[in-house]
Design a protein around this nucleic acid. Structure first.
Lengths: 137, 137
DNA sequence: ATAAACCTTGGAGTTAACTCCAAGGTCAAT
DNA sequence: ATTGACCTTGGAGTTAACTCCAAGGTTTAT
């Protein structure tokens, strides 16, 4: 069991952020000390790690709360509910990956045209590179 | 040449957003009518399209401005400068894709465990699914 | 036993990216 | 020539996600 400052330091966030996440229902201290200090266990580290990573890939806190609430918990949710939400989030992710891949290819093209490209490329920009990507279906 | 409302409608953004982008230096009307109306050409549509897509994959407006400023323009930038910035952005994208792929796999796993999984899975959540993904190197 | 380094709550302030509003000018159609 | 749908600027308001601050209680080290 450790306190808020130790958890914060471990994953490089501020204690204010952790209190904010608690307020938003994302990460609650599993216990309080007699003096009222928040106490966390290693479970909390995993959960916070997840929140941080999910934020990095572009989920907002509401989405993350939803992701964390997806649980195969036969008492409370039907299989259909869990599956639908899970697949919905997966589709969102797939769409992002597809878009990112297009950007990646156009940046690669731009870099290649820059050094060693055979064309004159006096005015090549990411927009023209993107056209080339789209053009090469 | 068309006016701000027509451009906005075409790509489903607000005219306020377009004025905001102009203020931020992302998309300037190439001309003004005698009465001061902003006038755009089809070039602007491409540029706005790019801005919207880049936003969708998680770039902020400052990043997008930087992306749009990457141009193989031999008058103003050295090849090295262009290439460095381009590859830096590409690395950012690759890191996002890698992270998203992990999420994708864990969601797939979660969906599979839900319907048809052989384990009891009374308490399977995305966190345990993620562990399984990490575990299977 | 007291200073330094923690923690608590409540509330105000910040930043990015819009979004809305007021007061007024422009243009096409009736 | 006037109505309605456009456009202008400047500035205020909103939302998400923090970030900071004040006033005070707790723990640890000297």
């Amino acid at each position: 069991m450790f306190r808020i400052g130790q958890l914060a330091k471990q994953l490089n966030v501020s204690t204010d952020t952790l209190r904010y996440y608690e307020q938003q229902g994302l990460l609650t201290a599993c216990e309080r000390s007699t003096s009222g200090y928040r106490l966390y266990d290693k479970h909390a580290v995993d959960r916070l790690q997840f929140i941080i990573r999910a934020k990095e890939v572009g989920f907002n806190l509401k989405d993350i709360q939803e992701l964390l609430s997806i649980k195969i918990d036969k008492q409370h949710y039907s299989c259909e509910e869990v599956k639908a939400l899970t697949l919905q989030k997966r589709d969102w992710i797939r769409a992002r990956i597809a878009q990112l891949s297009i950007f990646e290819r156009s940046l690669t093209l731009l870099a290649n045209q820059c050094c060693g490209g055979s064309e004159p490329a006096d005015t090549c920009s990411i927009l023209t590179a993107l056209e080339d990507v789209d053009g090469a279906h």
